[in-house]
């Protein structure tokens, strides 16, 4: 006798998955996500993909305009700079420096900031009040100014810039995690697991984190766009990546002197920065939009 197969499995997608299902339905956010993935692929595989070397100069091909210009050359699709370095290859390797490193910076500061923030949410009294005031002070100093001060202490250079931006971003993550965790901790489901005898750390790990992860990711996209702009700005001011490295901000700076003869050396890195920041912001907007819809539903 054939037994009827009845599956009565109910699926409860996690908050994160629910968010993804809403996120998928906003086309603009998906375009942003696609662009971000494209940039990540570029950042990881740029050493294999670049048609020319990003650092070696080619003295026969100085200041070649982009290939759509009558005097351009198709082997150098986006032209060359004043040392004959291929712009396309430099922009592609720049993706791993400006975009890739900003990603790394955000991940590091996210981990540290979330750890400090969630631990501080569990404390109260004078320690918490001190931390709150301290955060207010640090957050009131402009991020770039703070980064500049830290670079002044550590000395210019790309790695020092990165540490400076990590330190600038940490307070923002501490602040948002702290508030989010405190908000969740007064809710009933936390009380339920507390009555089951769960320790604070266990509640944090299994009950609170799955519910605040989207807020942290939305903050991470804000931090990422700030990090890209800060890395590029410090590179532009000559405090970040040294000149030969194809960092987008530093490329812009070296292009200024040739602004009138070779405007593409200034347009293209700026467009690349704009593109990556817009892609990041679109993803962030999409997340915040779906968070709002999710809350309303």
């Amino acid at each position: 006798m054939a037994r009827e197969k009845i599956y009565q499995e109910e699926e409860f997608p996690s908050p994160f998955l629910q968010l993804w299902q809403i996120f998928r339905q906003t086309p603009v956010a998906m375009v942003g996500l696609g662009c971000s993935i494209f940039l990540i692929v570029l950042a990881v595989f740029s050493p294999i993909l670049t048609p020319h070397s990003a650092i070696e100069s080619n003295l026969d091909m100085l200041l070649l305009p982009p290939s759509w210009d009558p005097s351009g050359n198709i082997t150098f699709l986006l032209g060359t700079d004043d040392l004959g370095r291929d712009m396309l290859s430099r922009l592609m390797s720049g993706a791993s420096l400006t975009f890739g490193l900003s990603f790394v910076v955000v991940v590091i500061s996210l981990v540290i900031g979330v750890l400090i923030g969630s631990l501080s949410a569990l404390t109260s009294g004078i320690k918490a009040s001190f931390l709150n005031h301290f955060l207010d002070v640090v957050l009131s100093i402009p991020s770039l100014l703070l980064a500049i001060i830290i670079v002044a202490i550590l000395g210019p250079g790309l790695s020092n810039t990165l540490w400076a931006i990590v330190m600038v971003l940490i307070p923002q993550f501490v602040h948002i995690t702290r508030n989010a965790v405190k908000e969740e901790f007064v809710k009933d489901y936390v009380l339920a697991s507390r009555l089951d005898g769960a320790s604070s750390l266990r509640i944090l790990r299994y009950s609170v984190f799955p519910n605040i992860v989207e807020k942290i990711i939305s903050q991470a996209t804000l931090a990422q766009s700030a990090a890209i702009l800060d890395i590029a700005a410090l590179g532009f001011l000559g405090l970040g990546a040294p000149i030969p490295l194809p960092e987008w901000g530093a490329m812009l700076k070296s292009g200024i002197d040739l602004f009138y003869i070779a405007p593409w050396a200034v347009y293209l890195p700026g467009l690349a920065i704009l593109f990556s920041v817009v892609a990041t912001n679109l993803v962030g907007e999409g997340i915040r939009h779906s968070l709002k819809l999710h809350k309303e539903s």
Binding site: S225, A232, G249, L252, G270, L274, V277, V278, N281, L282
Partner: peptide, 10 residues
Amino acid sequence: MIGYSIPVFW
């Protein structure tokens, strides 16, 4: 969105 993302030095 574009104005918010544009790098000020550029």
